[in-house]
Amino acid sequence: MSTPTLIKTTARDGSGSQASRRERAAGLVPVIIYGHGQDNVQCKVDGHDLGLAFATSDQVFNLEIAGKKESCLVKEVQYDTFGQRILHVDFSRIDLSEQVAVEVVLEFRGDPAGVSAGGTRIVHHPKLSVNCRADSIPDVVVIDVSGLEIGDSLHAGEIELPEGVSLDEGQLAPGEQVFAVAAPRVEVEETTEDAEGAEGEEATDEKTDEAKPDGDSEGKKKDSGS
């Protein structure tokens, strides 16, 4: 693992939603640092620097808090509705030699044989919960799925993990499907039925639409008659 990226923090003037909004408007991101039996520290980070730091696959960062460097693990990142702006980050203090529970991205390589035969690739879990040392969190776990036929699946317990990394069975059972190649669905009949159904509905709607003015005219006649 390379040296963790350094993120400089500054103390926050106030807490709460109003203060947070003011900081966000100034291009800063409110963050909280907790863990290891120490007091929580609320501070702010430059949004641009944070964005650059999070563009990498790192999960552990060095945070400079009041002139002191601490190793921290990203616990939670809150984004805005459109997923473009970071609103808030939770950091947890860690010791680089301790075991941590993190989520690692899975990269499925190769085209499964079943997909070329008409099957559908289904990714049930794009990430895997693992336990490992904080200084050896893998960036990505690569899985070769080229040998999977239709109906085959890959379970969490079958994934080969790097040395020192183990599956977090509390989060994901070893028997849980992670990747599967499903049999092709009988789309032709369904689609035609749907199409006919949709057309049929439209046709009936059109009929009802056409029928409505008649009903109205009847009502009008009644009105005029009265």
């Binding site: 092709p184 689609t191 749907d194």
Partner: peptide
């Protein structure tokens, strides 16, 4: 919504 579903199924058959 139904029109969208049919359009998506036709553009990418077999997808979910």
């Amino acid at each position: 919504l139904e029109a969208g579903r049919v359009a998506a199924n036709r553009a990418a058959p077999g997808s979910r």
